[in-house]
């Protein structure tokens, strides 16, 4: 089971972060955000911060998966888990890049 977790955790964290940022985008564009007295620049800041946190978590996971304590005893599983860690990191950067590329709420 641990090997299955090693393989599946980074990408699972990606989908969680991706959905969370999408949800956050929904919130900052809803009436609730304005009602709380927050504007568009705060919205952008929150989204970018969430993106950076997601990247940091992925970097952390990638490092942890290579430490003697958490790496798999099987060389093959270690390779796959690190490869998928890199995939998850790239996915986090790539799919959430729009937070710095597009307008926030139109």
């Amino acid at each position: 089971m641990n090997d299955i977790l090693r393989i599946s955790v980074p990408l699972t964290v990606w989908i969680a972060a991706f959905s969370a940022v999408y949800g956050l985008q929904g919130i900052v564009c809803s009436d609730h955000w304005g009602a709380a007295g927050l504007g568009l620049s705060a919205a952008r800041a929150a989204l970018v911060a969430a993106w950076l946190v997601a990247i940091a978590i992925q970097l952390g996971l990638l490092l942890v998966l290579q430490t003697p304590r958490y790496a798999s005893p099987s060389r093959w599983v270690r390779w796959v888990s690190v490869a998928l860690g890199i995939v998850a990191l790239i996915s986090t950067v790539w799919t959430l890049l729009p937070v710095v590329m597009t307008s926030v709420c139109i």
Binding site: Y22, W94, T95, L96, P98, C105, I106
Partner: peptide
């Protein structure tokens, strides 16, 4: 849906073509 939301999914949709 606002364009940023669409862009997330557009980017994910091209990324999935890599594997």
């Amino acid at each position: 849906i606002p364009h940023m939301g669409l862009a997330f999914f557009s980017a994910a949709s091209t990324l999935v073509a890599v594997p």
